[in-house]
Design a protein around this nucleic acid. Structure first.
Lengths: 196, 196
DNA sequence: GACATAAAATACTAATTAGTATGGAAAAAC
DNA sequence: GTTTTTCCATACTAATTAGTATTTTATGTC
């Protein structure tokens, strides 16, 4: 990788970490260049504006990560119910990057940037839609393979699962411990079993 | 009400509206005094800092509203399942103040202010805990009256319901229309029926 | 190795931010 | 009716913000 491409990526990664922990608005360009050791000239060579960088983070960091970790595994799923549970459980309890007190990066950005920034809304909506569609597909497969009841409606379940995930992430932030996660996961299990 | 108490309340109300629609960080004191027609001297007479005003909004606007609209009705509930659905449905589709594109005020503040502001976390946690406890109580009553299965665990369900609500509010913000609400509500109904 | 362009460093600006200092008007206390 | 306290108005400050202008240094190309 060229040196230039490298500084660009450092900016994106460090900025993402800062934004994940502090929020987009409260993360200043000065914050970013201070932690990256990159000068302002370099920053503005790579990104015309702060928002352009924000969008790049979503497109180039969040999107690929999500594709790799959640979309792909779910696509190759044989047992949707089990996999949904494992996906959420992994995200809540095991993912090494995500932290209870900082919530869900996508959820945070959605909350903070919509409704007043259409560009952010657009790319975030795409991202979430991808995830949603994958879940719906997985449910349909489960229905044909007999693992899921035929009267279950994929879109409804997808919204229900993802909403629950976003919401409990907020509880985690509020209490700053994962006890709420554990309680939530038990009910998720019971809900998912109801789809069989 | 005294004139002073009146200006204080105007500040709180208008500031709350601004914060609800724009977020806490992006709402400046200058924004607030501009829309309230209150001078900076008046503002800082009533509130020592911006954060003190933020806390006051939660304690004096959000808390009472919640008590009145969600805690009380749920407490006097005879049919928890039906009332849970109606509560969420009302909040999502009918409440005249809340707007799809702005999400849930409590959820927004939680997302934005935790984890880096302990004072906000504290009062918000109290608020949410109150709501959660009311739901749990309601479930227990439903269990004794036979409307809810005996093996249902109140805390789990409370987390599940509230998480779902917060989460779907985020979807609403993202898409800026209530179509996701309608889909979500159908699955909520089906989930709640599973508790019978 | 000269040259062109890409990449980055430095110093700046104009606007906005939360908060302050100080003085005056309104209301209450006496 | 004077004095005291409450309440509010105006003008300011120091820090921070995103972004720019300009210069300097690498890097690749011939």
């Amino acid at each position: 990788m060229s040196k230039a491409a490298n500084t660009r990526l450092t900016i994106l990664h460090k900025a993402f970490e800062l934004i994940y922990s502090k929020g987009y608005q409260t993360t200043s360009i000065d914050d970013i260049i201070a932690t990256t050791q990159v000068t302002k000239g370099a920053f503005y060579y790579h990104f015309k504006t702060k928002d352009e960088m924000g969008i790049a983070i979503i497109e180039e960091i969040l999107k690929p990560t999500m594709q790799e970790h959640f979309i792909k595994p779910t696509e190759s799923s044989q047992n949707p119910i089990e996999d949904f549970y494992n996906m959420i459980s992994y995200l809540l309890l095991e993912d090494p990057f995500l932290q209870v007190k900082y919530g869900c990066p996508v959820g945070n950005l959605t909350q903070e940037m919509t409704p007043w920034n259409d560009k952010f809304s657009g790319v975030l909506a795409e991202l979430v839609d991808l995830w949603k569609k994958t879940i719906i597909n997985s449910i349909e497969k489960g229905k044909t393979s007999g693992l899921i009841r035929k009267d279950v409606i994929g879109e409804q379940v997808a919204f229900f699962i993802l909403s629950g995930y976003w919401g409990i992430r907020n509880f985690g932030k509020l209490q700053n411990d994962n006890s709420s996660y554990l309680v939530y996961l038990k009910e998720l299990r019971s809900y998912l079993n109801g789809l069989k």
